[in-house]
Amino acid sequence: MRIKDEKAMLAFGRKLATALRPGDVVTLSGPLSAGKTTMVRGLLAGLGYRGEVPSPSFAIVQPYEELDPPVWHVDLYRIDDPSDLEELGLDDVGAEGALLIEWPEHAGHGTWPRALALSLEALEDGARALTAEVPEAWEGRWPLR
């Protein structure tokens, strides 16, 4: 899929919000400035969040527990060792909330096997190429309508 600009990335995030369910994990891969956090901003807006959405690069985990479903936005860029994940308490999210995870490769391959795995790549014209690995749990929800 081709996403032409920031406005389209926000719109895609809002559309993704309509398909998000409690217990979902969505991973977002791609280089710096590929649009991962922009997509999350659109998704959170689609769930009704109206505040600022900072990149959780320094906090690592930014919870939005007031949303339905509650969302934890996670940025693993600064995680060097997958064993550090235990300290983040991501398992506590459970079936009630959804995880949006940037830089999932820092957690080690296969950490979230049931995740909707989205990957962004910057194109020469400024657009983004989006590819998805769609797990069985997303059957009937993907492609987004």
Results as ranks from 00 to 15, higher is better:
residue 2 R to W: 06
residue 5 D to F: 03
residue 7 K to T: 13
residue 7 K to R: 15
residue 10 L to M: 11
residue 11 A to F: 05
residue 12 F to Q: 13
residue 14 R to T: 13
residue 19 A to F: 02
residue 19 A to N: 01
residue 23 G to L: 05
residue 25 V to F: 04
residue 26 V to H: 06
residue 27 T to P: 11
residue 27 T to I: 05
residue 30 G to M: 11
residue 30 G to W: 08
residue 31 P to R: 05
residue 32 L to I: 14
residue 34 A to Y: 05
residue 35 G to R: 00
residue 38 T to C: 10
residue 41 R to D: 08
residue 51 G to K: 03
residue 54 P to A: 15
residue 54 P to M: 15
residue 55 S to Q: 11
residue 57 S to P: 03
residue 58 F to V: 02
residue 60 I to R: 08
residue 60 I to K: 11
residue 61 V to A: 08
residue 62 Q to E: 15
residue 65 E to I: 10
residue 68 D to F: 07
residue 76 L to D: 10
residue 78 R to A: 11
residue 87 E to Q: 10
residue 90 L to Q: 07
residue 91 D to S: 12
residue 93 V to K: 00
residue 97 G to H: 00
residue 97 G to S: 03
residue 99 L to A: 10
residue 99 L to G: 02
residue 104 P to K: 06
residue 106 H to T: 02
residue 111 T to E: 15
residue 114 R to W: 10
residue 120 L to Y: 02
residue 121 E to L: 12
residue 122 A to T: 13
residue 122 A to N: 14
residue 124 E to D: 15
residue 127 A to D: 12
residue 127 A to Q: 09
residue 129 A to S: 13
residue 131 T to Y: 02
residue 133 E to K: 13
residue 137 A to E: 13
residue 138 W to M: 01
residue 141 R to E: 03
residue 142 W to A: 02
residue 143 P to W: 02
